[in-house]
Simulated assay, not measured.
Amino acid sequence: LNSTSIGMAKAALEALAELDLFGSSGGTRSFVHVMADDPQSCAAVLESMLPRESCSKETDAGLLSVISYPAFAIDNEDVVNSTRDCIVSVLEGRYGCCRFLRDGYRTAVEDPTRLHYEPCELKQFENIECEWPLFFCYLLLDSLFHEDEDRSRRYAALLERLAQPDRHGRPLMPESYAVPADLVAEGAGESRQSGAAPGGSPAAPVVP
């Protein structure tokens, strides 16, 4: 089970409840009926799992889309706050949030031909995980929905700093920031502090 999947399923069930598939042309037989117990079951399982993503994985930045925009799958504000705080404290860096700890995707040492790594192999990705500005967007939206002006200004400023101009001068947001291969070798074993690349050098933007 994955918390993000459960949260999105709950949101989808709530959105589909009593939806008329044919709009004004529909009738009593074109409504989608959702059993009331199903969203509640999802909610109970989800709250029991958060802030973890699954039994095998710790927290995941993707949970931001579950506890806030667009799913809004959690009604308990204490769970929302504790999950957000966990994500920020564990995964937030200078250039965005890591997806999860020891995430090898897009790193300099990733083997793109492999779909799976054994748990003992994940150590090589520790402290060099890519950071994704997208999650700052989620945190900005969350702060706006909660009318938290201080957090809104902070994440808006961070996103403005991370934007890269295109050839016409228009700001574009890199998909991710990665630690360059030479710095991975130099800083092997160093802790990632506030999103800094090993040795304190900046990470490089990755634009798809």
Score class of each variant (00 low, 15 high):
1 L>R: 08
8 M>S: 07
11 A>M: 06
13 L>K: 00
15 A>K: 14
18 E>N: 15
19 L>C: 08
23 G>D: 07
25 S>P: 00
27 G>T: 05
27 G>N: 15
30 S>Y: 14
31 F>R: 02
31 F>G: 01
32 V>T: 06
32 V>P: 02
36 A>S: 14
37 D>Q: 05
40 Q>P: 00
41 S>K: 09
42 C>L: 09
48 S>H: 13
56 S>W: 07
56 S>P: 01
58 E>M: 09
59 T>V: 07
59 T>R: 04
60 D>Y: 11
62 G>W: 01
62 G>Y: 05
68 S>W: 09
69 Y>I: 01
74 I>V: 15
78 D>S: 15
78 D>I: 12
82 S>T: 14
92 E>P: 01
101 L>R: 08
103 D>I: 03
118 E>T: 06
122 L>K: 15
126 E>C: 09
128 I>K: 04
130 C>Q: 02
133 P>F: 04
135 F>P: 02
135 F>V: 02
139 L>Q: 02
142 D>M: 10
143 S>H: 02
150 D>R: 12
151 R>P: 03
160 E>I: 09
160 E>S: 15
161 R>K: 15
174 P>N: 07
176 S>M: 08
177 Y>G: 02
180 P>F: 12
182 D>L: 14
186 E>G: 00
186 E>F: 09
189 G>D: 07
190 E>R: 11
191 S>C: 08
197 A>Y: 02
